[in-house]
Structure formats: C-alpha cells, structure tokens
C-alpha cells in the first residue's frame, strides 16, 4: 500500500475515529493535527517494515546461542538482554539504516496534508517567486545533505556495533 495512501487514510480517517471515540469517552471531541496524522501514518509504515527487519535478524541468530544461554542457567530475559540483543543490533543495522534513509525521503509526502515541512515551504517559496527549478533543486540538495549526514552517522554506528567482529 503506497505511503501516500496511508497518509490520506490516517489523516481523514483518524479524525472521524478519534472524534467518535473521544466524544464517547470524555464528551469532548479531540483534534488530530496534521503533524500527529503524519507521525502516525509514517510510524505505521515504518513499524511494518521494521518488524520484517527484526524478524529476519532474529532468524539469523543461531538456535545454539539460546541453548548456550540456557546451559549457563540464564533466565529468558537475561538471555535476551545479554546474548541476543547485542547480536541483533549488528544484524538489524543495515536494514534499519535503509529504513531510516527511506523514511527521511517519505517525510516529503506529508506536505500534501498541509504540514509545513521542507517541501511545502519550498512550494510556498515557488508560488511567490515563480522559480520552481531553483527552489526544488535546493530542496533536493538539502535532502541530499541530510542523507549524507545520516550515512556518516550510520557508518559510525556500524563500526561500533560490529566492534567485536573479525574485520575482513
């Protein structure tokens, strides 16, 4: 399902839902701000992708790791915290960083529900200066800068997460 569609459904749909629920519970209708709707919609999309990433990462951890933990007499929670999670971070990192990069680009979509993000401000600039090429190019370059910064940060994190691994 396209992210744009999710956004529309959440923006218009959640308003009806929230108003109905909140009037029933508190007798006061609540308002869903575009920011909240955008957050929820992109959050839902990310949640579904991220759960795939984590699932794959959990599967990639050998069953022997759990067994070894149990053999040491560790409790379930401790096995998770001390043995599984540190490995999970390393395994899930490439997938998660891809998600982060695509999420950053998806945020551009919220401009269609009147949220004043980078792209919408660009549109405002365009409509008053009539210089679409220049301003959209600048907007693109800003996004590019953001992904460049994220790549650097991700590279650092990756080095940190795989610090115990043999370097190839």
């Amino acid at each position: 399902m396209p992210e744009l569609l999710t956004l529309f459904v959440v923006y218009y749909g959640s308003q009806y839902l929230v108003t109905a629920v909140s009037t029933a519970l508190f007798g006061v209708p609540l308002e869903v701000s575009p920011f909240f709707a955008g957050m929820v919609a992109l959050g839902l999309v990310m949640a579904s992708y991220a759960s795939e990433v984590f699932l794959a990462a959990f599967r990639a951890i050998a069953a022997g790791q759990y067994e070894a933990g149990r053999a040491l007499g560790l409790q379930k929670g401790k096995i998770m915290r001390l043995i599984i999670l540190p490995q999970l971070i390393r395994l899930a990192l490439p997938g998660l960083s891809n998600l982060w990069l695509s999420l950053m680009k998806d945020t551009a979509l919220v401009s269609v529900i009147t949220l004043n993000d980078l792209l919408r401000q660009t549109q405002v600039a365009v409509s008053s200066t009539r210089q679409p090429f220049f301003f959209y190019l600048v907007a693109c370059l800003i996004y590019l800068g953001l992904s460049l910064l994220s790549s650097i940060a991700i590279g650092q994190t990756r080095r940190w997460a795989s610090r115990g691994m043999v370097t190839r």
Binding site: V18, G27, V28, P29, L30, E31, V32, S33, F36
Partner: peptide, 12 residues
Amino acid sequence: LAAMIVGITGAS
C-alpha cells in the same frame, strides 16, 4: 501525552 499532542478543543 495525548492531550499534549492532540490538543483538547473545548467545542462542548
């Protein structure tokens, strides 16, 4: 939190 994000409107 909900009140903070959503903002209660006194349309009652």
